[in-house]
Design a protein around this nucleic acid. Structure first.
Lengths: 192, 192
DNA sequence: TGAATGATTAGAAACTTATCAAATCAATAT
DNA sequence: ATATTGATTTGATAAGTTTCTAATCATTCA
């Protein structure tokens, strides 16, 4: 039985979305920080005290607190001699799926684009050229991402790149110029 | 001004409680695993396909899936050629505090103490001396933690330490003796 | 002002982890 | 059976993190 070749999808376009959430998770995935948070859940505290409680050096505690403060998990305020650290409780009510799931709530425009792309691309290939103008533009813009800004391409190069997505590179090349994504000057093509 | 010496509390007695939860958090604190989970939220998948989607080798994907399977986050089942991996959705409804918090289901006495302390201390300061005897004892016991067992203190020292928590060190010093937390012998004070 | 002390930073060492290539295992179709 | 192909394991490497010591900074009190 022949099995499909699974072309690569082109490494994760959605880094940024995951990034912040990942930051929070990484932060919480440390034994010492969890211990600190558990103590702060009970009472505010300060560097030296936490160091004693956990049998670690103040430098280490400071390292963790600063890290958590930068992420908005804890807050600090000087009080006399000490800098009192306290919990930012709001953060802790999120569920795991809320944290892990990519924001599909972006704006509706983005969402619509994603749906269109999901519909017309399968495994990185364009299954069909959309007949609706708006959908066609979205699809063409996606293909255009494979061209570098400001770079000149010969017709053969253009065809080869487009061919990665769909057999009919002629139609697509023409459409890209028609809808103003690319321009042609004599023999060379480039993004607008 | 002399500041209290902060006797060590003896390193974390509660490792085990944190351990499992830590395992889950560590698991989720990885970009690749989050990507995998996001894909599995949409549809079940298999090693090779995920490898293509994420531009990683099957070996790497397998490494992550096995890890997550061991923790009960995903499940696997063979289907023809492929081993289909799917999400164990129940896990994702927990909130962060549920994951992080140590089991406070301890005894109610402990819980009550915590509530009282949380109410009367803000940023490490005693906001008000409780009038109810029981609550006052809890608060005084908390302050007493800043004194070392068996050590003798002069009245000035005692006042200084208490002053870290509240202006009225005289009242508190008197109360600590009245309720049997401290004893006074001539000029020296010590914990009982 | 200067002495005391808590907080922070810098740099180094130890540890953990993700990733890949190559070898092996497991199931299926011919 | 055996060739095929997806899944897994192993061993090596590279990258990232935690922790410490030592030095420095910042604040308060005398």
């Amino acid at each position: 039985m022949a099995r499909s070749a699974l072309p690569k999808r082109g490494k994760r376009e959605v880094y940024e979305q995951v990034e912040e959430k990942l930051k929070l998770l990484k932060l919480l995935a440390d034994e010492t920080r969890i211990e600190i948070l558990n103590i702060l859940m009970r009472e505010d505290s300060y560097v030296e005290k936490l160091a004693c409680d956990l049998s670690l050096t103040p430098a280490t505690i400071c390292y963790h607190l600063k890290k958590m403060e930068a992420a908005g998990v804890v807050r600090s305020a000087r009080s006399q001699f000490y800098i009192i650290y306290s919990l930012n409780k709001e953060i802790f009510d999120k569920t795991l799926s809320e944290i892990i799931k990519k924001d599909d709530t972006a704006d509706t425009e983005e969402k619509y684009k994603k749906e269109v792309l999901a519909h017309f691309f399968k495994y990185g290939k364009l299954t069909q050229i959309p007949s609706q103008r708006k959908k066609r533009e979205i699809v063409l813009a996606e293909i255009a991402k494979s061209f570098e800004k400001g770079k000149d391409y010969g017709e053969k190069e253009v065809n080869e790149i487009i061919h990665l997505f769909h057999e009919d590179h002629c139609t697509i090349r023409r459409e890209m110029i028609a809808c103003g994504i690319m321009e042609r000057e004599r023999e060379t093509y480039r993004l607008i």
